Computed example of a mutant assay.
Amino acid sequence: MGQLVSIVVPNHNGARTLPQCLSALSAQTHPDLEVIVSDDGSTDDSVAVARAHGAHVVATGVNGGCGVARNAGRARARGDVIFYVDSDVALAPDAVATAVRILEAEPDTGAVCGIQDPEPLVEPTLIAQYRGLQYHYWSLSSQGTVSFLFPSLCAIPAKVHDEIGGFNPRLKQTEEVDFGHRLSRHYRLRLTPEVRGKHAHDRRLKVLLRKLFHRARLRIPLYARSRHFATGFETRERAWASLAAAASIPAFAAAFAGPWGLLAPGLLIAASIAGDRGMYGFVRQQRGPAFTVFFAGVHYLVNLTIVVGAVAGVTQWTTSRAFRRLYEQPATP
């Protein structure tokens, strides 16, 4: 008999995508599974959907965030391996079996995280298509050893999880960065395209930008303490690309000096694109030149949002002692 895998599905008002998520779990090739839906204060039909699919349901009672929900599910889990999958993700049929195989073959690996397909799970709006391609490429280019968790689909041996502790319940948006930071001090954290799934990405630009703003802002206290970026998405080239995009805004003032005044902002935007040229080449190959132009426009706004979020985080870090200590509290076991 193989290892028992406890699949923990943190959920808040996910009734729209939870059926696809749970159906994909029923189709897994790994034979020994228990499925736990950790409901984080949903007000929709999520709990009824989960029970109709035969999942165990754990309720947090309040909307405490993904970290709180994952901790509640972990407390109920009996498996040798804990596999986290978000309620808006549908795993490929071999995802669990592949993750277990990798963990068995690599004892020094403390977590195996998968990569989301470029196509959105449902309702592929233009923004969802942008996010699917962007997130897929950034994940694919980061494959290998990383230092923060990709918790939308990842497997962790239960004994490693117990050693590292749980997710910090005080954190929202960055609990996975904190968890991965702690885990990667002792174990390898692996990101691989061998473990796959489809994700229902954000459908509206406003929602996506708000999320990215707060993720950039809330990373500042952790990076200020560790004095380096996490290994993964945050490459030096992408940081410069974001700064170049932000610098193009004041440079547009030079346009009042005449046509040559557009040269400076144009060069900065070109530098921003060059900082992640592999991504734009990938998008052009997948979707053609017209969509690539749209993609570049959205990503320009994303770069601006990241810089504004980082500036807000630095400002808050310099003025708030509580913000500077955001990551000092130990996670709840």
Rank of each mutant, 00 (worst) to 15 (best):
R131E: 04
G132C: 03
G132R: 02
G132L: 02
Q134A: 11
Q134M: 13
Q134L: 14
Q134Y: 07
Y135G: 13
H136P: 04
W138H: 04
W138Y: 13
W138E: 12
W138C: 13
S139P: 02
L140M: 14
S141A: 11
S141V: 07
S142Q: 05
Q143S: 04
G144A: 05
G144L: 06
T145F: 08
T145H: 10
V146F: 07
V146W: 05
S147N: 07
F148I: 13
F148M: 12
L149G: 04
L149P: 07
L149V: 13
F150E: 07
P151N: 14
S152T: 13
L153R: 11
L153N: 14
L153Y: 09
L153W: 11
C154N: 10
C154E: 02
C154M: 05
C154D: 03
A155C: 01
I156D: 03
P157Q: 05
A158S: 11
A158D: 02
K159P: 09
K159R: 09
H161S: 15
H161W: 06
H161N: 08
D162M: 02
D162A: 08
D162N: 09
E163W: 10
E163A: 14
E163D: 11
I164D: 00
I164T: 01
G166D: 12
F167T: 05
P169Q: 06
P169C: 06
P169N: 12
K172L: 03
K172E: 03
Q173W: 14
Q173S: 07
Q173I: 15
T174Q: 08
T174I: 15
T174L: 11
T174N: 14
T174Y: 05
E175D: 15
E175A: 07
D178S: 00
D178H: 00
F179G: 01
G180T: 00
G180V: 01
R182A: 03
L183V: 00
L183P: 01
L183E: 01
S184F: 00
R185W: 02
R185Q: 09
R185C: 00
H186C: 04
H186D: 08
Y187G: 10
R188Q: 15
R188I: 08
L189H: 00
L189G: 02
L189M: 07
R190V: 15
T192F: 14
T192Q: 11
E194P: 05
